[in-house]
Amino acid sequence: MQIAIENGYTKLVLGSCTSRIACHVLSATVKGQGYSLAADIQYADARWEVPVVLPLRDCPLQELKILCNLDSLKIVDIFNETGAGINGLVSSFVKILQEENPSRECTIVRTAGKLTPFPFNRIPEANVDDADLVSQRRQKKFNLKPIESLPPESFCPICNSPMSCYGNAESRPELFRAACCPSCQYQILPDEASSMDQFYSFLPESIIARAKNGNQKWIREKIQDCLLLDDEDEV
């Protein structure tokens, strides 16, 4: 994303296919990222500064390998060994399911595709060109509501996943724990408060700033009823 911003790219195209997205659906569910799952599996994702598109979303890995063989393209397997973490276990599980039923991956993705997309799962109108006509037709098919008719979302400062609300700041007064999604709170943030300073040292300044802005937004929403409007006289 940083390279795309520095070079002025208008879109970031990822090669995530049906097989990889099917694994992500199950692993995200296991990790407690069910609320934000719909954001990651759409054809377009404009929550980032450079919109992300997934043109191979409907293409299973087997079809892509056949296409590469027909075009005499070399196939390189980057990860040959299955890891012991959640992602590795899910990949092995989906592979077994696929061997039993070749359509299982497509079924997983189609089932997850019934989740309601977020307002940022569309390409901004200012960036729409002739190449985005297909994306526009897909948006009509999935009946995406206008952005102005949907409530604004809060985003996790670490993984940028959308959240329905921020954590309880009273029980989690620390900035990051109040602003992060539950998945990052329990999987990425250190358990000991004394380790947070070292954790901060590994983070880019952009993430720190995003957490501060998000926390300010959460506080403003909590005291919204006590704020004076612009057209109200001060007391």
Rank of each mutant, 00 (worst) to 15 (best):
N160V: 04
N160P: 06
N160Q: 09
N160F: 13
S161Q: 04
S161A: 07
S161W: 06
P162E: 02
P162W: 10
P162A: 05
P162Q: 04
P162H: 08
M163P: 06
M163D: 03
M163G: 04
M163E: 00
M163Q: 11
S164N: 13
S164V: 09
S164W: 13
S164D: 06
S164L: 01
S164P: 10
S164T: 10
C165Y: 14
C165H: 13
C165N: 09
Y166R: 11
Y166A: 01
Y166S: 02
Y166K: 02
G167F: 04
G167E: 02
G167K: 00
N168E: 00
N168I: 05
N168Q: 03
A169Y: 13
A169G: 00
A169M: 12
A169T: 15
A169V: 15
A169N: 01
E170D: 10
E170R: 12
E170V: 15
S171L: 10
S171V: 15
S171R: 15
S171N: 12
R172M: 04
R172G: 03
R172I: 10
R172Q: 09
R172W: 14
R172L: 14
R172D: 03
R172V: 12
P173I: 05
P173N: 04
P173S: 07
P173V: 07
P173F: 13
P173Q: 04
E174M: 04
E174R: 14
E174G: 09
E174V: 14
E174F: 13
L175Y: 03
L175V: 14
L175H: 00
L175C: 08
L175N: 01
L175T: 13
L175A: 09
F176V: 10
F176C: 01
F176T: 07
R177C: 02
R177Q: 05
R177Y: 12
R177I: 03
R177V: 05
A178L: 08
A178W: 13
A178G: 15
A178K: 15
A178N: 09
A178C: 10
A179L: 06
A179M: 07
A179Y: 03
A179Q: 03
C180P: 01
C180R: 01
C180V: 15
C180S: 12
C180A: 11
C180L: 06
C181W: 13
C181E: 08
C181Y: 10
C181K: 11
P182C: 00
P182W: 01
P182L: 00
P182I: 02
P182Q: 00
S183P: 14
S183K: 11
S183R: 10
S183Q: 08
S183A: 13
S183I: 05
C184Q: 03
C184I: 10
C184M: 04
C184W: 02
C184Y: 13
Q185W: 05
Q185V: 04
Y186D: 06
Y186R: 12
Y186L: 03
Y186P: 06
Q187N: 15
Q187I: 11
Q187M: 04
Q187L: 09
I188M: 09
I188A: 08
I188Q: 06
I188D: 04
L189Y: 07
L189E: 00
L189R: 01
P190E: 00
D191K: 14
D191I: 10
D191Q: 11
D191G: 14
D191T: 15
D191H: 15
D191N: 13
E192G: 06
E192W: 01
E192K: 12
E192C: 07
E192Y: 05
